[in-house]
Nucleic acid binder design. Structure first.
Lengths: 351, 351
DNA sequence: ATATTTTAGTTAAACGTTTAACTGAAAATG
DNA sequence: CATTTTCAGTTAAACGTTTAACTAAAATAT
């Protein structure tokens, strides 16, 4: 055989996928019928549907997400934007976030495109391009507040977007977060009810709203219980272990007998400072953290802290986002998830 | 107004994108010309090309990745598979990997689909489905060895796949990794040259090849320098801080005067055990870690360690993968990147 | 028996690109 | 001047789905 053969007709080594057309031929129906049957459209009677599904299985059919996406104008993919990893102090925090986002997405049959909010990401407007090029149906933004004003553009063009874990006080971007105010409040109140009298605060950077809200909760609890608010008892720890350590050293000099650390990492730094100066936790100084990262229970002594619903926030954010995308309605919302005190060994009744 | 309106026909707010057709009409040429011009095909003279590019810019054109992908049978997306985050001890390690992968991908104009090697991932054969549904052009697998035998299927179907950071001794899957053997070797040799005499090893789990290779390097260095290998000096630390701590406690009882910890995290655990028992680093016990995570230099004293090229491995893995995908040639390779000793303060000449 | 409705499909357009093959005019060649 | 080559495009098919609109036959209603 093999005579001539115009062009590359029989050399066709190109990876061949099973398409809806193959199924149609195999079963002896049109491609439309196959498509309808596979999407369980009731217009196709059970018998035919069965036959088609069987054939699809036998032939090893898998639909092309590209073809489907093209006609439906949906990609079933959302982008998750996280801060540049080099900058991340609290990796466990982001690991948890990502986990929540991933789990919720896959349960809905969506895929997760990971993006890092680098300088290039912003300069080249990737956050817009991904939408404009129809690579994603929506976007979740976690953490950083660096260039966030740019994100207004996304909303202006009407794309589904959700902020998780933080929010922007000046721009109306839908967000889900944990109850930072209440977190600061119950942490401080807990220290008060333990009998501590000179309660310090190690706060995260105050250009981040969550830190500000935790701060406010701390203040409120003090005032409500007849404690004066003393600005001397507040030190910045910049969210890092090292920052917590330095802040605690200063607070020890000011003779605090308890401290609320704005996150577990800074609490860990505080532990180090306290131990170095020969003081005991919780007898000499009580410590409450916030976040309840997995490491919190491994500290010595195990850290009393406020559980911040990081994983859950990721899930809720995705759920809301998918809702928006599928209904085609972009709406503003504020979702604040509850926090709760996890009582361990770094605080106890004094005297 | 607002009178009836059949269904949602005239509410047709469906987001409208600028297409190649719009540009064609605007400039007064065919869509083919636009396509060719935009891809800088030399068949289109400069003048026309300019006009088309200008029009594209003015109209705000962005190509549909879906349409392009459909015809080119490429998605410019690769999947990065990491172990389930709950299981990750060494988050910094994965953060670095992801970073390397992301950076290299974006430089090539690719996107990063994140996947977690959960039980579901394996059971539902997502790793195959992503390929079959044309969602990705290639896959990078980092870390876990849990269900890796399944991955053979991917290679069998001829999809581009690269293993990063580890490899499978029994299956020929292309990989890039760091020189684990040499790492163990130079770490141990360094301890010897410092004058330490009773050198212990805290090893990671031995079902992971990297741990095995580091172990072998340790052994080789001992033998080459006339030290007998004493199995009593080897303890398992399971890659975790806690594991390192427990292992070190045992080694202290056996009077080691130095230890090579199979990663920085276990070294950190070792620090804790050593300090608790009142011994000094490096005077009483020298410690060498491996990986050189950002935290290593923050320990007290800063940890002497072997830099493992985690970030670089991610980059190289991606480069190789893209090469494979674009050339359409799936080939086996083993890429072993160099390691080097980072000399800090946890080791020093003794006596 | 005829008209109407339902059933079980089919046809063909659409999604937005790329690209092989074609075309008509201008330029180069002999 | 006739012929060939180059230039500057165009046409149309292809990628693999979905879906609105159509149809022919069967079932039901009048």
């Amino acid at each position: 055989m093999k005579k001539g053969g115009k062009k590359m007709e029989e050399t066709g080594e190109k990876k061949q996928y099973v398409t809806i057309k193959d199924i149609a031929e195999y079963v002896g129906v049109s491609t439309a019928t196959v498509s309808l049957a596979l999407s369980r459209n009731p217009r196709i009677p059970d018998e035919t549907r069965e036959k088609i599904i069987d054939a699809a299985k036998k032939l090893g059919y898998r639909p092309s997400t590209l073809a489907r996406g093209l006609v439906k104008n949906k990609t079933y993919t959302i982008a998750l934007v996280i801060p540049q990893i080099k900058r991340i102090f609290v990796q466990a925090y982001f690991a948890l976030s990502v986990s929540g986002v991933y789990d919720e997405l896959t349960e809905h049959g969506y895929k997760l495109l990971l993006e890092m909010a680098s300088y290039e990401f912003v300069r080249r407007k990737r956050y817009l391009r991904l939408f404009r090029e129809r690579s994603i149906d929506g976007m979740i933004y976690i953490g950083s507040t660096l260039y966030d004003t740019y994100l207004k553009e996304i909303l202006e063009e009407g794309y589904p977007f959700v902020f998780v874990g933080s929010y922007l006080p000046d721009i109306k971007i839908p967000y889900v977060t944990g109850d930072n105010f209440k977190g600061g409040y119950i942490a401080t109140k807990h220290l008060i009810s333990c009998g501590y009298k000179r309660i310090g605060l190690i706060t995260g950077s105050l250009n981040v709203v969550s830190a500000v809200d935790r701060f406010k909760g701390y203040k409120k609890a003090l005032k409500e219980n007849g404690f004066g608010f003393n600005p001397k008892f507040v030190e910045k720890g910049h969210f890092s272990e090292e920052g917590g350590y330095e802040a605690m050293k200063k607070l020890i000099k000011k003779k605090v007998d308890a401290v609320f650390a704005g996150n577990d990492l800074m609490a860990q730094g505080a532990y180090r400072a306290i131990k170095e100066s020969g003081l005991r936790i919780p007898q000499d100084i009580g410590v409450v953290g916030m976040d309840d990262l997995p490491s919190a229970s491994l500290l010595d002594p195990p850290l009393t802290t406020v559980k911040y619903p990081i994983y859950e926030m990721g899930r809720v954010g995705v759920k809301k986002l998918i809702e928006m995308s599928e209904k085609g309605i972009i709406s503003y919302f504020e979702e604040v998830l509850p926090v709760k005190l996890i009582f361990r060994k770094s605080t106890s009744k004094v005297r």
